[in-house]
Design a protein around this nucleic acid. Structure first.
Lengths: 231, 231
DNA sequence: TCTGATGATTAAGAAATGTAAAGGCCGCCC
DNA sequence: GGGCGGCCTTTACATTTCTTAATCATCAGA
């Protein structure tokens, strides 16, 4: 498993990222200050560093320069919106990628995977071999192409819809919690009045159609989450 | 069968969880102190640990750190409500998930299954194939799709109603205690004036209909619980 | 037979989820 | 570079499901 070091003073963001990265099978550790982060990076026990360019005591670029003085570990920088200058500096100093705030956890994960892929990292293959196909009754999904078909014809799902379906089908027969699903699919936790997931769910259900007469494929377990009925 | 270690000083909660997890086919062992729990974890005979962050002698985080020093066993932490800081620390130290108190046993079970699922645990398949069907007289239930039919026509039960029926039918011929039923179905123990279960029971009975003239399918055992009459 | 305890029933209230439609964002194409 | 269309979110309201409240019925023991 890849171990990722997050250096950012925003604890809330760190928390969110940690949670999300965990669900993507990355181990994470956070440091809220440049100095601490540097110390940790020096232990050499990480595979990648996510570094905020805006840090309270020590500037992110300083930290990067410092890291580069002893290691080639990949670094993804988080930059403030439209912070072009720093971004260029960061790339010059040897960051592997940058991501302007605000961004969604999903984007970050995509970047992380891209970086590992660039490095031709063999282990990455074993991290994401859920590129498998899943078929239950007349519904078929293929993660590698992110397509879902019903009796061979494309369902034309959006990314979020596909993601929901993917998660539910992989767990078919067991309940997937609402919060867990939201985190994986929307990249955030649901606040009390966030109906977004419900809307996607509704749209997905309509596209999937009933399994028979009036039997839903996706069953709601009130107060807990959703369950994809296994045939 | 998965064996789960619960480390929590709240004996009442432990008892509750044990009961509930047992019904979900998990074997459980409890430890009411950090030191004891640690000793038990060291035996290596558990598949997952549920760990309360608030422990009398040794702090839960200490225990976790300690466990992590010798094992990668999945750990789910129980945190006090809104205990953000500890929660972050817990995730840093390598807990696999966390659950803020108060929570319902059902939520916990969902988390446990999610963790096993994340680990791609093959045995997980065998954990949840209570996909069994049960048929008694003209009533037929199928757990995997959570549907109940009478003479082939759908009874349109709600989650709670189905769950009650499922539990009673699986134990047909024997008495299921009220409290036990409430725990499994509503995820809580009934307080003195909680009539919720009665209401569900009433609705369920109405949907089921009588077995003949005026014979109830579900018999009330006053002061104890309910019994589904076996044909 | 009276009485307190327990369970049943009905209706009203609250909470969770479903859904249609409007709004906003963003990339794309002429 | 302005309109267009796809996609996600928000809003607002509908619907379903669960809980609470109130009242009634039944049972067991004094």
């Amino acid at each position: 498993m890849k171990h990722i070091l997050i250096i950012d003073d925003d604890t809330e963001l760190c928390e969110l990222l940690q949670e999300y990265l965990a669900s993507e099978k990355f181990a994470t550790t956070t440091a809220h200050g440049g100095a601490t982060g540097l110390e940790m990076a020096k232990t050499g026990s990480f595979d990648l560093v996510i570094l905020d360019i805006m840090l309270p005591e020590m500037n992110g670029l300083e930290v990067l320069k410092n890291i580069r003085s002893f290691s080639k570990i990949p670094v993804i920088m988080l930059t403030a919106k439209g912070d072009e200058v720093d971004r260029i500096l960061g790339l010059e100093l040897g960051s592997d990628d940058y991501l302007p705030k605000p961004f969604s956890p999903r984007e970050l994960v995509a970047r992380i995977k891209a970086v590992f892929r660039r490095l031709g990292n063999a282990e990455e293959q074993s991290v994401k071999p859920d590129s498998l196909k899943v078929e239950i009754a007349d519904i078929f999904i293929e993660s590698s192409t992110r397509t879902a078909t019903k009796n061979g014809s494309d369902l034309a799902l959006t990314e979020v819809e596909f993601s929901i379906l993917e998660n539910l089908m992989r767990a078919a027969g067991t309940v997937v919690e609402r919060q867990e699903l939201a985190l994986k699919v929307l990249g955030r936790r649901l606040s009390y009045d966030d109906r977004s997931l419900d809307v996607h769910m509704s749209n997905l259900r309509r596209k999937l159609g009933m399994i028979a007469d009036d039997k839903e494929r996706i069953k709601t377990i009130r107060g807990v989450g959703y369950l994809y009925v296994r045939s």
